[in-house]
């Protein structure tokens, strides 16, 4: 399996690359969004701010959308999940618009939603293959999909309930950081990749 991590130039991709490398995959970090399409699965990592990442993706937005709608498996983590949506309160620019909805600030007294928290009402089959009930989150914003049926797991922070996982077509997004959620998180991420390419 050839895994490409798209690098928007804003942070730590080492542990993600290591977590994705199960010994049988070839993991590559690619800064050029068009070149990043040449792989079996595209990973949108969870580091950086929305505006900065969206402007990095802008020139390749149409090509990325066409590839994902054409069936290219795409896994978005944290900010990467948010980039699958239409737009965000965090910053200017367009998301990929692969999943319909907006990204808005987490509605709570303590923001960012930072630390280890439960994953609730998980319905995705990946959780059966690799159980994960607690994960590390670091998000000040959350996805608000127009359709509830894309949501495969939930998070609750104070009075706000937002998706922990969404899936639509070949695109899947997780709000938490599996690559920072210790061994169970890494196992979950690998199961997610295996499923994406099955």
């Amino acid at each position: 399996m050839r895994v490409t991590i798209l690098d928007y130039g804003a942070g730590n991709l080492h542990s993600l690359a290591k977590a994705l490398d199960d010994g049988s995959s070839r993991v590559r970090v690619e800064a050029d969004p068009v070149a990043a399409l040449d792989g079996d699965v595209l990973v949108l990592p969870g580091v950086g701010a929305f505006g900065h990442a969206a402007s990095h993706l802008a020139p390749a937005r149409d090509a990325l959308r066409a590839a994902i709608f054409g069936g290219l498996p795409c896994v978005g983590i944290c900010l990467g999940m948010q980039l699958l949506f239409d737009e965000s309160e965090e910053g200017a620019g367009a998301g990929l618009g692969v999943i319909e909805g907006r990204v808005t600030r987490v509605r709570a007294r303590r923001v960012p939603h930072m630390g280890w928290a439960a994953i609730e009402d998980a319905s995705d089959s990946t959780f059966e293959r690799a159980p994960l009930d607690v994960a590390y989150y670091a998000n000040g914003f959350a996805c608000r999909p127009s359709r509830a049926d894309v949501v495969r797991a939930w998070s609750i922070h104070e009075d706000d309930r937002f998706p922990a996982m969404v899936r639509e077509g070949s695109a899947v997004g997780v709000q938490f950081h599996p690559e920072k959620s210790s061994r169970a998180g890494v196992a979950f991420l690998r199961a997610l990749m295996a499923e994406a390419c099955a």
């Binding site: 942070g11 580091v47 950086g48 701010a49 900065h52 900010l79 670091a138 000040g140």
Partner: peptide
């Protein structure tokens, strides 16, 4: 730093 990398870091 927050603008470039996000407040979470």
């Amino acid at each position: 730093c927050a603008e470039r990398f996000g407040s979470q870091c």
